[in-house]
Design a protein around this nucleic acid. Structure first.
Lengths: 143, 143
DNA sequence: CTGTTAATTGAAAATGATTATCATTAGCAA
DNA sequence: TTGCTAATGATAATCATTTTCAATTAACAG
């Protein structure tokens, strides 16, 4: 699984360093969550009992890198710290429904908004990107 | 026009100060643009030849306040400074199409996405708010 | 109109996430 | 293994935004 991701780094002429491996691992282990940089940093520090520790700057740099090459997607919500998640090949494009009251983030699959994208292109000439959309509102509990 | 807005402040038990009036004025004069706080601060400073000057903190505070009570809407896009626009009663809900290449922001009227909102509510139980949505993609020129 | 008072303001300091700097370390190709 | 760079880590720097707090002033009562 992670092997494929290492290859992905190679394809981009990027070195497969211990730090990148460790960060990728954490992202993978938490592939169902949206982690913030600081979070990931702490998780790495905990594991650090055996592994070597990783600087905070490296975590920031690496996540930014992963987002740039399309390994991870970045979700930045207002002034709150940015959050990242691994982009899984099977879990195709999706979007975030962000609750304005409790801040919960739930996902909605991209194909459900396909019609919507077509409509926008047709009416405005604007081509909606694959980038996850942030949709604000109220979740079932908070309504 | 602005009179109505002053009344709006009253309704919320907020004082109609010279600073708030001045900021409202600037927002009104630029109601077709999305101004950033610093922008507004400069515009106010220019006018300042005759008027008294306004502190930067006040501009921040006031815009935040306007957004909170629904007089203005805040558009914050990644790490770029937040931008504000007056919410005009006639110009009903709208959303922002943000070009990932040139950063241009164009608007799309809310009623065009009404079906979309209904679909999300139906399928996920999530109620999409009136809050302007940020939709990323590529504008006609940049495609 | 005048005094009272709590909301508002301005200047400056603080915050806090993120980025830049730069000397040191470590992939990896030969 | 060696050499060349990319990558890293510690720390300082950024920079939009927020906080602090003393001074000002809008709103209101008398």
């Amino acid at each position: 699984m992670l092997q494929q991701l290492y290859l992905y780094l190679n394809e981009h002429n990027l070195r497969v360093t211990q730090q990148r491996r460790a960060i990728l691992q954490v992202l993978y282990e938490n592939r169902d969550r949206h982690l913030e940089t600081e979070n990931i940093y702490e998780l790495l520090a905990q594991k650090g009992v055996t592994a070597r520790k990783i600087g905070l700057s490296t975590v920031y740099r690496t996540l930014e890198l992963f987002a740039r090459i399309g390994l991870a997607s970045k979700l930045s919500f207002g002034k709150a710290p940015a959050r990242y998640e691994l982009i899984m090949q099977n879990k195709n494009g999706h979007h975030h429904l962000i609750c304005l009251r409790c801040g919960a983030v739930q996902e909605i699959n991209d194909h459900k908004i396909h019609d919507f994208k077509c409509q926008i292109l047709r009416e405005t000439g604007f081509e909606v990107a694959e980038k996850p959309m942030k949709i604000y509102g109220y979740c079932q509990q908070c309504r």
